[in-house]
């Protein structure tokens, strides 16, 4: 079998979403994003099977599979497990060779990853156990504000006088938002304040590894345009985003498939 037809896969079992991606040589054949469940082993099998079907291949055509994400140990059919930090670095570098800083904002944590000119990991920092600065924060707030997570990402554009959310803790911030709602503050002003609050937490982590351009954002929260706008404003630079064919939430699984290719 020549190099051009080798098929690899990455399976990324995150705290909120489970992802699988199939790659042939440099080309992404398919990817699938589904919700995580209380049975990560079965979820891993499902997303992998679905992505194979979507790619039109049989499961046994995949030469090497890398599992990643919090549930990586539960990807029982994987040839190897690699931490999601290494995978996000590899995936982002594959799509954007000049990237030097990757911010991965997932469902329950946030990581800043610094990579060198050869795409190798230089340094990383991640948030502690709390939900501030993560997708969970956005989800909690969307529930109180009765808007969808998708709507959250754009409503902030209508904000004229954004509020300042002073509580770092997500649970306290929740009470703060309830107070603001009761004071008749406009939802869009609260949302912009929330995006700024989240990016303040992210900026702390980014500053710990040092800001080096080019910088991009991966993970589910990268799909929230309002967070990206707030990050641009906070960091004072332009974050480079992936083109529309690439979902930022799949970058970890992509990186796993890229690393898998190096193993065959």
């Amino acid at each position: 079998m020549n190099n051009d037809s080798i098929i690899t896969a990455g399976v990324d079992i995150g705290s909120t979403a489970s992802k699988a991606l199939i790659m042939r040589a440099e080309d992404v054949l398919s990817f699938v994003i589904g919700p995580s469940s209380v049975n990560p082993a079965r979820t891993a099998e499902t997303v992998f099977a679905d992505s194979c079907e979507k790619a039109g291949i049989e499961k046994d055509e995949v030469r090497y599979i890398i599992g990643t994400g919090y549930g990586r140990a539960k990807v029982l059919f994987a040839d190897e497990n690699v931490s999601e930090i290494s995978c996000h670095a590899a995936g982002a570098h594959h799509l954007m060779p000049d990237v030097r800083t990757v911010i991965d904002i997932g469902g329950q944590d946030c990581k800043a990853i610094s990579i060198d000119d050869n795409g190798r990991l230089r340094n990383f920092a991640m948030n502690d156990k709390c939900a501030a600065g993560t997708g969970r924060f956005i989800e909690m707030m969307s529930r109180i504000l009765e808007v969808t997570v998708e709507e959250m990402g754009n409503l902030d554009e209508q904000s004229s006088s954004p509020v300042v959310i002073s509580n770092v803790c997500s649970v306290f911030a929740e009470s703060e938002v309830i107070n603001l709602v009761n004071e008749d503050i406009k939802v869009e002003d609260i949302i912009k304040g929330l995006h700024r609050s989240l990016t303040n937490r992210v900026a702390v982590i980014v500053n710990r590894v040092g800001l080096r351009e080019t910088i991009t954002v991966t993970g589910g929260v990268a799909k929230n345009a309002g967070v990206i706008r707030a990050l641009n404003e906070k960091l004072g630079i332009e974050i480079k985003t992936f083109d529309n064919s690439m979902d930022p939430q799949i970058v970890g699984a992509l990186g796993a498939a890229v690393l898998a290719k190096k193993k065959v």
């Binding site: 919090y70 931490s83 930090i85 290494s86 190798r120 991640m126 156990k129």
Partner: peptide, 17 residues
Amino acid sequence: LPSEAQLKTRFETFIHM
């Protein structure tokens, strides 16, 4: 300690680095 999964992610990445 923080959850073992989170610790493992940090140590694995550091050791990989």
